[in-house]
Write a protein that binds this DNA or RNA. Structure first.
Lengths: 134, 134
DNA sequence: GGTGATTTGTACGTATGTATA
DNA sequence: TTATACATACGTACAAATCAC
């Protein structure tokens, strides 16, 4: 399972392991991961190390934490379609703290930034918005 | 500077402080942040807490770490313009491990995902690509 | 070439706070 | 009320890579 003598850090090995379970469907959307203490116990590692692994998955947008209920596999949001206007430019970046609060963004969710021809910028949460070129 | 009795966590206060310095230009692109130990000393907090703050800025894509040289304000990459085709849909998400390696993506950089009308998906690093609707 | 100092990374431990069930 | 679970914050120790001398 976890190889302390391996080249890859222990917390990355645990993240890899959980990521595989999520991507394979062994852990399904909405399902809870084992608690931090449980994981620490199961794999004989410290809770700190478990938190590093979970933190990794959070930044990847794979899990969300509902404190203190637990940590859950992220459930896809309903997607709203937004139509691009002529001359629009589209980029993406991670939100800062204010934007995360404003749009109630979960960890690991980027924002789409649409820059209109006149320079006006519009920000969309990337988990709930898709843009279309008609 | 840092208020230990405040509602906002100390590491978030430090992240806010550094973020302001970056966004105001006081810390310029390519410039090094003070070392973790230096920050811990300056603000009388533990290195662990400093690392949480820096970690926050990394997930936001504001700083990059060149170990063990130091932590630097991220330098904008030259942007390539990609034109959208009729019927394309655009989304954004954080990259998985493979994509991070393939595109040599830094922390906190999302990918733009373009889905063509026939379902084909194309992935672009969001720090080096902007999409346009002609 | 080598040595030591610096800096970030990993991993452990402890303690306490806060919100939920 | 009690137990559970995540969040914050402190500490220690050592590893690995770079750099100045």
């Amino acid at each position: 399972m976890i190889d302390h003598s391996a080249d890859r850090a222990v917390f990355r090995q645990l993240a890899d392991l959980l990521r595989r379970q999520i991507e394979s469907g062994e852990l399904r959307p909405g399902e809870a991961l084992p608690s931090e203490l449980r994981l620490a116990d199961d794999y004989n590692i410290s809770r700190t190390t478990v938190r590093q692994a979970i933190g990794q998955l959070r930044t990847e947008g794979l899990v969300t934490v509902d404190r203190p209920r637990g940590t859950f596999v992220r459930v896809p949001e309903p997607v709203q379609i937004v139509t691009l206007a002529r001359g629009d430019r589209v980029g993406a970046r991670m939100p800062n703290d204010n934007e995360r609060r404003k749009y109630r963004l979960r960890d690991g969710v980027p924002v789409l930034v649409v820059t209109a021809h006149d320079g006006t910028e519009t920000v969309h949460p990337a988990d709930r918005v898709q843009l279309t070129r008609p």
